[in-house]
Design a protein around this nucleic acid. Structure first.
Lengths: 332, 332
DNA sequence: CATAGAAATGCACACGTTAACAATGCTATT
DNA sequence: AATAGCATTGTTAACGTGTGCATTTCTATG
């Protein structure tokens, strides 16, 4: 059996209440007894029983970090940065529970008793029901990466539109006038934001885009390959292609090389996300970095603050994205 | 307030004991009452209070998945596959807590009360003390990825040596006779195993290796770049280089291209690990796949079984690695 | 018909912690 | 000297669940 506050109490010749107070730094306790008790607790190698504490305090000390899915579509780097960011913030006294939303057969066990707070790293609208469920159960909730409209939550999102804008503007500055886009998955907020940024930049520079330059994709590698293949067959071939994420950019580059052409000599390619591999492809990919780790860190901090103070701004906060210039875009 | 078994008891006109037994499928309870109570519980949207249950049952329903570090050295793919593998196995009633060992200021809160079991994805000997600590506290423990000798634990490890052997043999089969190696971090078990596999294959084929062909590295990208740079300056330049992981292979390829040479035309390169990006580099990397996800799945399964039956083989199990042939090795 | 035994249910306590309230001793103020 | 008030500690109950033992009810057997 492990040691409890009652054991300490016996040894110290006080009541277990006094021990509890002493260990929790209650101002009610005489500083001397407090020290004495702490010393005894230390020497007995005492560790509090969290279950008992949770029961009476009605707090689990669990934080949930939920992803849309862990199976497909979630990039490893994404998971990595998110976990790192959150773990950096929470102290030793919280447990970080990582789960894919689609792994739950039922949300039954997700409730305020089991989770002091929840961070949803949302990648698609499919977890809308989960978000609404958690919000409904009044579990402290912050949603990252994707703007949520149906319910009021703390919501931290990278500013995809301005990232796409700056990237496109950069392409223009490098002398490109024929700039195509390979789009993300239809229906995703991120797809729209990136397209909007692209459009806005071109419009402001007085560049019009032929219909054929809008190539459809779905964020995966193969779709990037297919889309680029089509673009290359165009009579009026673009000199630069903005791929809405790095995965598709990788597929696109592959399509170019397969045709015996080269990036960036024959055609420039840019991506979005700054995946881990992007710096090491050849050519190293010019892209836009999304601050996933910062996002997660900020999310965790806000969540903790909310748990403690019980109030916070439930509003959308945009996070700065950053243009990363490498070697896949040629100046012409 | 949320609903408890006492609320159900009141509504059903029985004692809370009966409710508890009914919900736990005790054979003591009349099947009809059992059904009735379950129905009521369902309609009231009852969820058990895990803290209370934990307190009396002395089980936390928490499983820990611990990495050596989450900061540097842990590849994202590694983390991803491990989490996926474990999460695939545990049912809805366990929480998976993910943490970097070096994030703990003190292991104090790691004990049998807080964790029903622990999986350590060990990447270096620096977590030896953690493993011994957990073993000492008699927390059900399985260590993955790295062989542990100082204590008896369930230990699942990829067979790096045979993987390195097969890869090297493949290089020989492709006609290579001048095969260099870029080694991993000194002191790591994996470094030694891979070097051993490499040596063994060459010895068995009667190929001797000049001292200069042993290039030192430390598993990171830059070290691969540096090591390859040296190898390329050798008067007796190798025709193939076995890099002890994919990260270093990537750096090595970069070093080759920077010199205006090309892989695999001028020099063949092979890696180890089968990182996510490896299939998409150009050229796609020939490498050895380590079954991290299988490892994790098996580890989780064994751990759960141990938790339930309280006994299991505490021994080392090697997992099959797999040669993945792509485009970075030329037949000469 | 009496009774042994099985089946079903309830009572009371335990798990380890916190907290409201009570109690004690002491100091300072009148 | 009486008392108000503060500092410190103790008493007791509570959180929600599971379980050993007692109790009741029913069934079968002689």
């Amino acid at each position: 059996m492990s040691v409890t506050i009652k054991d300490i109490a016996k040894l110290a010749g006080v009541s277990h209440t006094t021990v509890s107070r002493a260990l929790n730094d209650s101002p009610l306790i005489n500083p001397e007894t407090k020290e004495r008790i702490k010393a005894i607790a230390g020497s007995m190698n005492y560790t509090p029983n969290y279950s008992a504490r949770s029961l009476v305090l009605d707090r689990s000390y669990n934080l949930g970090l939920f992803f849309t899915t862990l199976h497909t579509g979630t990039s490893a780097g994404f998971l990595y940065e998110a976990i790192k960011g959150v773990n950096d913030v929470i102290k030793d006294d919280y447990n970080l529970i990582v789960r894919g939303i689609d792994d739950y057969k039922s949300f039954h066990k997700v409730n305020r008793k089991n989770f002091d707070g929840i961070i949803v790293m949302s990648q698609s609208e499919s977890d809308q029901s989960f978000i609404e469920y958690a919000s409904d159960k009044e579990i402290p909730l912050v949603v990252l990466n994707r703007p949520v409209e149906s319910v009021q939550v703390m919501n931290f999102v990278p500013d995809d539109q301005s990232g796409a804008y700056r990237l496109t503007e950069y392409l223009v500055q490098q002398g490109h006038r024929h700039i195509a886009i390979i789009e993300g998955k239809q229906g995703f907020k991120s797809t729209q934001a990136r397209r909007d940024g692209y459009r806005e930049a071109l419009r402001e520079h007085g560049i019009s885009v032929p219909e054929a330059y809008y190539a459809s994709g779905n964020y995966d590698l193969e779709s990037g390959h297919a889309a680029m293949s089509k673009l290359l067959e165009l009579p009026d071939r673009p000199t630069a292609v903005f791929c809405c994420n790095d995965d598709m950019a990788l597929g696109a580059v592959k399509a170019v090389t397969e045709r015996g052409l080269s990036v960036p000599e024959d055609i420039s390619v840019a991506g979005f996300d700054d995946h881990l591999f992007s710096a090491f492809m050849s050519p190293a990919l010019t892209t836009v970095r999304r601050p996933i780790e910062e996002l997660s860190r900020a999310g965790a901090e806000t969540l903790l603050k909310f748990i403690e103070t019980k109030h916070s701004e439930k509003s959308l906060v945009l996070f700065h994205t950053e243009l990363v210039i490498r070697d896949s875009v040629k100046s012409i």
